[in-house]
Structures are given as C-alpha cells and as structure tokens.
Amino acid sequence: MSGAGDTISADEIITIELTVNGTPRLGHVEARKTLADFLREDLALTGTHLGCEHGVCGACTVLVDGEPARSCLMLAVQARGCEVRTIEGLAPEGTLGPLQQAMWENHSFQCGFCTPGFLMQITALLAENPAPSEAEVREALTGNLCRCTGYQSIVRGVMAASGAAPGGG
C-alpha cells in the first residue's frame, strides 16, 4: 500500500492549506481523514456534528467555497485550497447572526445536535434565494434530519429569517 505515482496510502500524512472561517489554516492529515474529523479534532471546531457518518442526516454540513457539503463524506485533503465555513463562523464570537436570532425566537431546535448542519444548509439557501417560499424551504432542507421538532419550527424560523435578513447569515 505504499505510495506510487498518484496513489497514496490511507495513513500517509499530507500537508494541506485551506481557509476556515476566514482564517488561513495549515494541517497535516492522514489521507483518509474526513473534513469533519479534521475540523473537529485538528482545529477544535466541534460545532460540526457527526450523526451518521454516511451522508444521510446532514448534521455535519459545512460550506465549501459557499456550497453546502457533507463533511463526513469529504476528505480533508479534498478541501485543500478551499474556503470552508462552519457554524463557528456564522457570526462574530459571542454574537448571534440574524438567522440564528430568528431561529432562537422561533424555538426552531430542541436538543441542538442537528442544528449546526441545518444552519449551514439554510445559510446556503438564503444566499442563493433570499426570499424563498415555504415550499422552496422544505425542498432545500430535505437533506437534513431532525428527530426532535417535526420541522415546523425550523420552517417558521427560516421564513422569519428570510424576511429579516435577505442574503442570510
């Protein structure tokens, strides 16, 4: 399993440079390390949660160059040179952004575990479509699972946020 040509072994250490929440970061990661594990373990950004590690629940959603991505299905090395945005980068430290404010006011979430993935997916939605219809919200968020709320409170929060904060964030 030794590296030859373009092939690298799973545990080979690779150096990557990327930008996370606006800050340039350097990492030395095993080739097989997921982006989620890199964010959580190497950068201590534990707001990105792992619910299934097979790309279904959406709790680990982050933005990679503005596009939502399942960080459990993406390798850290694939994020080389990318702009990654996580839940910790949604608002300045110690503050809430308008989306978070709207979700809070609408009791959008309960246990808080799926929450970061939803917020990142919603951020991407509002960036693309600042005033979505309820049907568009539901369609855009079908890739994120919540077991606590039945989703109605989340839809309500997004609708409030889209009125309050065109452009999201």
Binding site: R40, L45, H49, E88, Q100, W104, F109
Partner: peptide
C-alpha cells in the same frame, strides 16, 4: 439556545 445555535454546545464527542 445561544450555545446550541452557535455550535458551542458540549456533546459527548466534544
């Protein structure tokens, strides 16, 4: 909520 909606909760894997 403020800690949970900013990713600052503390779950077991954290």
């Amino acid at each position: 909520d403020p800690r949970l909606i900013t990713g600052r909760g503390h779950f077991i894997e954290d």
